[in-house]
Design a protein around this nucleic acid. Structure first.
Lengths: 136, 136
DNA sequence: TTATAAATCTATTAAATCAATAGGTTATAT
DNA sequence: ATATAACCTATTGATTTAATAGATTTATAA
């Protein structure tokens, strides 16, 4: 299941991408437009700024804005920032690899074999989509 | 992330599938061989029996066994029983569909558009794999 | 028919994660 | 100066996960 954090983060990014210009948009406006709890969205946007996807401006006329153009923003990056590993099991993760302590041999593991395929297919989708693709 | 329940369930099924015959295998033996807490595994196997994937026999010489041949057991069915919906969001789920209450128009939703693709690709993998494929 | 083996059932719990809320602080534009 | 809006820290309630404990039922073998 996708966490609400990820869902809201994606919606916020898509909303920012759909703006005509890259002028700052207030949290309140995003929250209202996407039906998201404003306080919850605050922490999500802050996270997206700290990880380099968004810029922000304080004070009057402030808000959040995309740093790069939507077509330059890959969904692999977005998903890893918001949701974490794309793999469903750490032992098949590219960026968050961890060995299973219960599993003596990965290559003989049925779970490993299946989840490797699932990861590859998900990865193909995320690599094939930019933020721009999601708003047309 | 895959739950431990699903991971253990898959491992148990694979272990049963790898047996020479379809004679009952005790919980204890499966748990030992796959490094799984026996008590936890008990409830998982019970669930797999109640949903029609496994048969069981009580008393001495009892245990669990596959009802169908491994090559007849699709991973779509297994995953839906163990993990639940294959989709990451209810609004793109085939078997567990639910409308998002925050989303006025699914077709205009960026999350929906992306998750639909992810679901399709995962589904293709699960449909293309039987239990037999995972143990060779 | 008795003892034993093994699944079944019910209940409880500890820990972790998620989603959200509250309230104060800092920076910026007018 | 004042208002605005992002930033930061902490806390909470709810839910889910993973596991444990212990008693019960059923089947087998002696």
């Amino acid at each position: 299941m996708l966490s609400k954090k990820t869902k809201y983060g994606l919606k916020a990014l898509a909303f920012l991408a759909s703006q005509n210009d890259r002028k700052p948009v207030q949290i309140a406006e995003i929250a209202r437009h996407e039906n998201i709890s404003q306080k919850f969205l605050e922490s999500i946007l802050l996270n997206l700024r700290k990880t380099g996807l968004l810029g922000s401006k304080k004070g009057k006329g402030g808000g959040y804005y995309l740093i790069k153009e939507p077509k330059e923003i890959l969904m692999t990056d977005v998903m890893r920032i918001l949701e974490g590993p794309i793999a469903m099991v750490p032992c098949v993760s590219l960026n968050f690899y961890e060995k299973c302590d219960d599993c003596p041999d990965e290559n003989a593991c049925a779970v490993h074999k299946l989840m490797l395929q699932v990861r590859d297919s998900a990865l193909a989708i995320y690599r094939n989509n930019t933020l721009a693709d999601l708003i047309k």
